[in-house]
Amino acid sequence: MTNYFDIDDILAEDELVPATFREATNGVGLFDSTDDTNKVEPGSKVELPFWLAQELHLRQAVTVNVPPCFNKRTREEIDADAAHVDLRNRCPFFYELGYKIAPLVGDKTIGRVLLIAFRTRYKEVLIKAHTAAFEATAKFLSLLTEEEVKLYKAAQSSAIAFKKWRKGGPRFQKASVLGRKRKPIQ
């Protein structure tokens, strides 16, 4: 799944995650704009994109904290009714980020949250993809994460392609070069 050229993978790694610097670091004052010293004090909290946080974590420069989309409140909402939690608002790449960040923060429960959320929401996606009219889906789609939208689109586009085929219409498409008149040669 993880693919260097996968645009969704790149976007997922762009999500901001909270991190705490372990050491004073010079030259990265842009993370902490409270003074002009262009350095970060140990213990200061910053928000870093995941790809940077991961690298700094590997070099033991920062400690990655659990992002707000996996906080207690979200978990409670997921336990209560996962299908109607607005995950997209919290993190458009909920599953991807959770999957990547779990080993970094050493939180063993994230995996379970992801699984429970997906198990419940998968059914909702399945039902909606097969039944809902197109107008009714806009509201529903706004709750889904990118991964779920992809799944939903996969189901819908194949169903639409089938319906189109069944309705018929022109079986052969004319190539655009055909029928174009050649310019008279002077």
């Binding site: 599953y95 999957y99 699984l115 997906f118 993809a129 799944l151 996969a154 189901a155 089938f162």
Partner: peptide, 30 residues
């Protein structure tokens, strides 16, 4: 035709489930 219509959906769903249920994510005890 039926297989072909559900294929993209099923493949994606199974893939996601497989990924989220990988041993690194979920410990055996739970």
């Amino acid at each position: 035709m039926e297989v072909n219509i559900v294929r993209p959906f099923v493949a994606k769903a199974l893939e996601t489930f497989y990924k989220l249920d990988s041993p690194e994510m979920i410990q055996d005890a739970e």
